[in-house]
Simulated scan of single mutants.
Amino acid sequence: MHNTRSSRGIQDLVDLFDCFIVDQFGVLHDGMRPYPGAVDALVMLKRAGKTILVLSNSGRRSAPNEQRLLRLGFQIGSWDYFLSSGEVAWKRLDRLLRERGGAEPLKCLLLARGGDRSAVEGLPLEIVDSGADADIVLLSGSMGDRFDMDHYRRLLEPAAARNVTCICTNPDKIMLTEVGPRFGAGRIAEVYAEMGAPVMRIGKPFPEIYQIAVEMLGHPPAIRTACVGDSIEHDIAGGRRAGLPTVLVGTGILDTLSRAEKAELFRRHGAAPDYFLPAFTW
């Protein structure tokens, strides 16, 4: 990997950085269970005096994501902050809807995973089942392990025909599931955009979520803040655009890719990582 330094574990980077911005899916766990050594690595990193912010392209708000980490076996107190794209989107929507004042609630077509409603809880939105009725589409998750893309096309075509804005709160194009990698919400958003309708994306690799993360960390020196992730397109490209050092792990969506295939992704996205770890272990 050109210009990328290989390390055995996160311990090798402890003296280089004060703050770690760590992705969850593909780095800490696969959605069903922690990766071997990840629980202990997070604990040891915190014991080493580091500040840790878990940064996720999850359409769910931050609190449900933290609760999931605890259910998976991660230890309370082994991270300092959690920020999800769903949290950023919820706060932005809350602000915009408050500015609308006493107008009738917007009709929202919500596309989420597993019936999750945290993306809209507490917001003055009327949830509808058809794109034909929607004033806004909120795309917070994919059920790509249950439905094919044609299902989403049929659902979204009536909204696209009316030029309804889609807010995608999970830009990941690939997600990890029990049946293997499947298309994520970010890919559904691409299809909606291909229909000619407007799409607003919130999350990695876009600047806003990194600005909020750095603010939560207290604006530490960029050179002492590392972004750790498994997605070259989202974690590595996003961290580099934010001016932060990046650490790529070989688990998650890259697990089956060859060295040459990774190099091609570096070239395509213009984002080679500064460091490579086989996995998020101590």
Rank of each mutant, 00 (worst) to 15 (best):
G102I: 01
R68F: 08
F17W: 01
G31A: 09
L123V: 04
G59W: 09
E104R: 15
L109P: 11
I127M: 14
G59H: 07
D116F: 04
R100L: 14
S62V: 01
D23R: 00
R117E: 15
L106D: 09
R95E: 15
Q75K: 14
L83G: 11
L109S: 08
V128Q: 07
V27I: 08
G114K: 05
N57G: 06
M44G: 14
G31T: 02
R33E: 14
S58D: 12
V27E: 04
Q24S: 15
L96S: 13
R117F: 01
S58Q: 06
G77L: 11
S56A: 14
D116H: 05
K50S: 07
I76Y: 02
K91T: 01
A41S: 14
A134W: 06
V39G: 02
G37K: 05
G102S: 15
F20C: 04
I52G: 05
D129Q: 14
L83M: 10
S78V: 02
V43C: 13
A119L: 05
A132T: 01
G59C: 09
A48C: 04
L16Q: 14
R61V: 11
A38E: 08
V22P: 00
R60V: 06
R113C: 03
G86Q: 08
R71I: 00
E104H: 06
R98W: 04
D40L: 12
Y35N: 05
G31W: 03
A119G: 15
G115W: 08
Q67M: 11
G49D: 06
C108L: 10
R92W: 11
I127L: 15
V54Q: 04
T51W: 00
P34T: 01
G37N: 08
